[in-house]
């Protein structure tokens, strides 16, 4: 069976991805840009589903849409006047930037689309390795399990490193984002008082 994603689903999701992404970079209200980002993330999760990477789709929703995007929305709420439209949202040279980006797009498309890829017509995401952990695993491994084993066998080190990465960014972010009780507050402080 050749893997053949449903074209209607693909084009719908692709339109949603592109449309929401455009809204992210052009929306006049920052909060709307944030919402559009969540839309993009969900659409990308849908594409993962279309690509049969279900676990990743769930992780995308859980971590990306659920944690990262929500955190960004919080940042918007904490720093931004609630309703002020972000009128001057663009730099002075949006057209130059647009031209640059179109050039980049041309290069990327030219580079990728003309290449030959090592793709196989096969459909299953079957791993080509044998687990060494002593677990009895059936021949057709569901992908979540295969993913877990893959994380255990060759990708142990990066897996551990990611936890260190998150730990250090957490420590540092706390320090930088927190107010320093030992020092006086920044000038021009407004009347607001955060808890």
């Amino acid at each position: 069976m050749i893997y053949d994603p449903n074209p209607v689903a693909f084009w719908l999701l692709a339109a949603m991805v592109a449309g929401c992404a455009l809204a992210v970079v052009r929306a006049r209200k920052l909060f709307h840009a944030g919402l559009a980002l969540v839309g993009t993330l969900f659409a990308v999760a849908g594409l993962y589903g279309l690509l049969q990477a279900w676990f990743l789709a769930a992780v995308q929703v859980l971590v990306y849409a659920g944690a990262i995007a929500i955190m960004l929305l919080f940042a918007i709420m904490l720093t931004h006047n609630m309703m002020n439209p972000d009128l001057k949202s663009l730099t002075t040279q949006p057209w130059t930037a647009a031209a640059l980006c179109l050039m980049l797009l041309a290069i990327l498309l030219g580079g990728t689309l003309s290449s030959t890829w090592q793709t196989a017509p096969d459909t299953t995401l079957s791993p080509t390795w044998t687990p060494k952990c002593g677990f009895q695993v059936a021949e057709a491994i569901p992908s979540v399990q295969a993913l877990g084993f893959r994380l255990l066998d060759p990708f142990t080190l990066p897996f551990e490193m990611v936890s260190v990465l998150i730990l250090v960014s957490l420590i540092g972010a706390l320090v930088v984002a927190r107010r320093n009780p030992a020092l006086p507050e920044a000038p021009e402080g407004r009347e607001e008082k955060a808890p």
């Binding site: 991805v17 592109a18 970079v25 663009l90 930037a97 640059l100 980006c101 797009l105 990327l108």
Partner: peptide, 13 residues
Amino acid sequence: LFCLGTYGVLTRR
């Protein structure tokens, strides 16, 4: 998607 992101980084203030 990548280029739209780049555009956003370049133009958003």
